[in-house]
Amino acid sequence: MSRQITNILLVGVGGQGILLASEILSEAAMLAGFDVKKSEIHGMSQRGGSVVSHVRYGTEVFSPIVPEGEGDILFGFELMETCRSLPLIKPGGTVVANDLQISPPSVLMGQETYPADLVFRIQDHFPDFLLVDGQKVARDAGNVRAANTVLLGAVSRRLDIAEEFWMKALEKMVPAKAVDVNKKVFKVGRGL
């Protein structure tokens, strides 16, 4: 039996809302009838460290983490973290990244510089690369705080999960008062 599995990595900085995005993604996949597994590390990584969340869905999923070099989609919330995780993605994989830079401690203290060539580095290796100014798109669509949902919408267009399941997942996972704006922003992202 061949197993059709979609492997998604969500990467960024602790506190950026990566866990919520990966929960919405997992919920939508389950509602669409897939088996789903998700894995990430809590604890130390929450204190502003790098965060990598793995989501896998398909007919039957075994490993809770994406096998190294088999990622189909890299969903980056921050540029340097996106670049750091490129080795996890398969050649020809898709990268959807937020155009946002968050300086790590060594850069804040002026000991190292934030790499300048990250976008080119991604482009050179992954032609299927979408760079989104999530904050700007979210602000234009009504709420700057919904930047992650813009990105999630952009990722959703590249996945075989129908829009109705995304809407149901948003209704379940997002706080009630923010559901409408998130749905709106999601659809904008889905058009990117």
């Binding site: 602790g14 340097m80 993605i89 398969k90 790590p104 401690p105 580095r121």
Partner: peptide, 29 residues
């Protein structure tokens, strides 16, 4: 990890991009 298990059994490994050195991002107060 799946990759470490592949190595243990001598199975072929998918070739991803080689890691590039970048400023680290350790947890912080």
């Amino acid at each position: 990890t799946p990759g470490r298990l592949r190595t243990a059994f001598g199975l072929p490994q998918p070739i991803g991009l080689a890691p590039v050195k970048m400023p680290g991002r350790p947890p912080n107060m």
